[in-house]
Design a protein around this nucleic acid. Structure first.
Length: 556
RNA sequence: AGGGAUAUAGCCAAGCGGUAAGGCAGCGGGUUUUGAUCCCGUCAUUCAGAGGUUCAAAUCCUCUUAUCCCUGCCA
């Protein structure tokens, strides 16, 4: 398949194809415009892949522009986090990073232009009055009493606003459009408000800040954006977007297109609500691996490629949608199945003693890192007569469906020998603590000579040489598919979303694990070393995703 | 005196007047030193509903229904 055939197709790309072939545009310029008021989540990843992906495929450019017009809610820390996330996802923005705030001078000039044209006025209605005058969905609004102030006076008033002579909320600059429009955003929208706030980019230079609807379209025009892609809730705003562009003297003429935002089952996808989880300490920060943020997925072990693949699989349309978790999980499993080296770790250890193994003997077994990809090589795994195995991999007796260790039955120790259980010890509560077995010395790398072949394979680690590690198992944060519909989030949080295993036993090769490096713990799932380890040398592994488990399903 | 959008399988999603792609999930089977992977098979006589145009309609027309968005000096 050629590269072009492998590209995603969607209605926005079709529009671009049309614009290019009709000569409306000769090149494509997009932009990703986050507000630095929180961390990016997987819904943003969809938008990032869309905008940067289009730029890549059409040999155009995509800007990264911080939409920073509301200093009270924004923070420079978010700017840094967002830059890191976009780069980590594998995209390169065109030239320098942009900020809407870098256009504040130009924007001010355009506002003055509107006033001069009689298309904007300073309004002294307070918040409540402004709302009353706006009317409702079924009732037209009323003109503001300040609507017919002269151009000269408006110019002077706006200058006073800019010079800090007006109080916050005392007045605002409004576009003069149509108080009876069926588009609420066209009922004389406020385009500048007074805020005596320190801005992370412009400092204390301004005490008036432009609103989104005035800023975004003009920033697009200033940057020469051809296709300004945003989400569905801005469809009505497009009328205001066009009005501003058409009534101000900017050179270029960008167009806005809207697609539906991503909803993911069992997760929240609104920065405001995610912020609530962080603020109320319902999670451990924006990058808590249970969060749907890009930083959290990174920490959990998702790869950039898997997130890009996910964006590709879900597509881009104008349909409301809620994607199942299984789609995302399939993407990361596909990547890690190919690329994560296999390793052994026992999460709930019990001892396995091989009674016919020579006292004090040890071996260094060579085990393949990947079952089918020879290029991933092999590693040395220490073996001895005392091992740890998974508690759930042993039963004193079981039916034929249970393919693990059972007394008087044989099982293969992964990469090692076939063993047959003989008896076990239990503690006072009846839990098995030690299993005794015998091994068949002639089964290393081959089946028993008597023609039998154990039906099960279990993983293990050496008691002496294994390392103790902390392993964190994550599950969905919420118990309901659509937590956004809940009024009380706390009541639908999954109490088992995080399970910490303090004393897991892992093979010694893991001592060299690097942060975020992916491994498959055989028969269990994909894990990576946490990227926020408190003490050097500590081993803390996060479970990215479990292996597909058809056994667990049939066992139910 | 409301307006703007959207309806194709359990969940996503192609389709653009010529007889319903693909993915995820599911189901059945095979291989396997991971109950993983991989492989094979299966999964919409029908496109929200009802009319109409046409030799031919998911695609065009009419009406109806359902859902989402819009009344921040947020974005």
């Amino acid at each position: 398949m050629s590269e072009a055939e492998n590209r995603p197709t969607n209605f926005i790309r079709q529009i671009i194809d049309t614009d290019l072939s009709s000569g409306k545009h000769n090149s494509v310029q997009t932009r990703f415009p986050p507000e630095p008021n929180g961390f990016l989540h997987i819904g943003h990843a969809k938008a990032i892949c869309l905008n940067f992906g289009i730029a890549q495929d059409y040999k155009g450019l995509c800007n990264l522009r911080f939409d920073d017009t509301n200093p009270e809610k924004e923070d420079i820390d978010y700017v840094h986090a967002i830059k890191k996330d976009v780069a980590w996802l594998g995209f390169e923005w065109a030239g320098d990073i942009h900020y809407s705030s870098e256009y504040f001078d130009k924007l001010h000039g355009f506002a003055v232009e509107l006033i001069e044209k009689g298309l904007a006025y300073v309004c002294f209605l307070n918040g409540e009055e402004t709302r009353e005058y706006r009317g409702t969905l079924n009732k037209p609004g009323k003109n503001s009493p300040y609507r017919d102030t002269s151009v000269e006076e408006n110019l002077a008033l706006f200058e006073k606003m800019k010079n800090g002579e007006c109080q916050e909320g005392e007045c605002s600059l409004r576009a003069k459009i149509d108080m009876s429009s069926s588009f609420m955003c066209l009922r004389d929208p406020i385009i500048y408000r007074v805020r005596f706030a320190h801005h992370h980019q412009t400092g204390d230079k301004w005490c008036i800040y432009p609103m989104y609807d005035f800023t975004h379209c003009l920033s697009d025009a200033i940057e020469g954006i051809t296709h300004s892609i945003c989400t569905l809730e801005f469809q009505d705003n497009r009328r205001l977007y066009d009005w501003v562009i058409d009534n101000v003297s900017v050179a270029s003429r960008p167009h806005q297109y809207e697609f539906s935002r991503l909803n993911l089952e069992y997760t929240l996808m609104s920065k405001r609500k995610l912020n609530t989880l962080v603020e109320e300490k319902l999670v451990d920060g924006w990058d808590d691996p249970r969060m749907p943020t890009i930083a959290a997925f990174r920490r959990r072990g998702y790869t950039p490629a898997s997130l890009r693949e996910f964006a590709k699989r879900i597509g881009v349309t104008k349909m409301e949608n809620t994607v199942e978790m299984s789609v995302l999980e399939a993407c990361i499993r596909e990547d890690l199945n190919d690329n994560a080296p296999r390793v052994m770790a026992v999460l709930d250890p019990i001892k396995l003693v091989i009674e016919n193994y020579a006292e004090g003997k040890t071996e260094a077994l060579t085990v393949k890192n990947h079952p089918s990809d020879e290029s991933q090589g092999s590693r040395i795994v220490p073996f001895s007569g005392e091992l740890y195995i998974e508690a759930e991999d042993f039963r004193e007796e079981a039916n034929k469906k249970y393919k693990r260790l059972v007394i008087d039955k044989a099982v293969r120790l992964r990469g090692a020998y076939v063993v047959t259980a003989t008896r076990c010890d239990k503690d006072e509560e009846g839990n098995v603590t030690t299993v005794y077995c015998t091994y068949n010395e002639d089964t290393l790398g081959k089946n028993p000579t008597d023609g039998t072949k154990p039906k099960g394979v279990i993983h293990w680690v050496d008691v002496q040489k294994s390392l103790t590690a902390t392993v964190r198992l994550f599950d969905r944060l919420f118990t309901v598919p659509n937590p956004a519909a809940e009024t009380d989030l706390q009541s639908v949080m999954n109490p088992e979303s995080l399970i910490v295993i303090e004393k897991a036993k892992v093979e010694p090769s893991l001592a060299n694990a690097k942060a975020e490096q992916a491994f498959q713990f055989e028969r269990q799932g994909y894990f990576c070393l946490d990227n926020d380890i408190q003490n050097a040398g500590d081993l803390v592994f996060n479970r990215t995703v479990g292996l597909r488990d058809t056994w667990a399903k049939t066992a139910k």
